[in-house]
Computed example of a mutant assay.
Amino acid sequence: MSEPLTPACAATRAWVEGFVVAHNVCPFARREFVSDSIRFVEVAANEWEPALEAMIEECRRLDLTPEIETTLIVLRPGLEDFDDYLDFLAVAEALLVEQGYEGTYQLASFHPDYCFEGAAEDDPGNFTNRSPWPMLHLLREAGLERALANYPDPEAIPERNIETMHRLGGERLDAELAALRGQ
Rank of each mutant, 00 (worst) to 15 (best):
C59T: 05
T71G: 10
N161P: 06
V16L: 08
T71V: 09
A175C: 04
D174A: 15
D36V: 11
A51V: 02
V97Y: 08
A119P: 01
V74C: 05
E47C: 13
G143V: 05
A29G: 02
L79F: 08
V34L: 09
A10R: 10
F19L: 09
V34Y: 02
E67D: 15
R76F: 02
F110H: 03
F110K: 04
L180Q: 02
E141Y: 13
Y85M: 01
D81E: 12
Q99P: 03
P50C: 06
G78V: 00
G125E: 10
L79P: 03
C115R: 13
E93Y: 05
G182E: 08
P7V: 07
E171W: 13
W133H: 11
F19W: 14
P77R: 08
H166F: 10
A142N: 07
Q99A: 15
V43F: 05
R130H: 11
L148Q: 08
F88S: 00
A10C: 12
Y105I: 01
F110C: 00
R76I: 14
C9K: 02
P112M: 04
M55A: 00
I162D: 05
V43M: 02
E3W: 09
Q99M: 10
R76A: 11
A45M: 06
R146E: 14
L79V: 13
A51Y: 07
E49M: 12
H23N: 09
E145T: 12
T65H: 05
L62N: 00
V34Q: 11
A11Y: 01
L138K: 02
Y85G: 00
A29R: 09
T128R: 00
D36L: 07
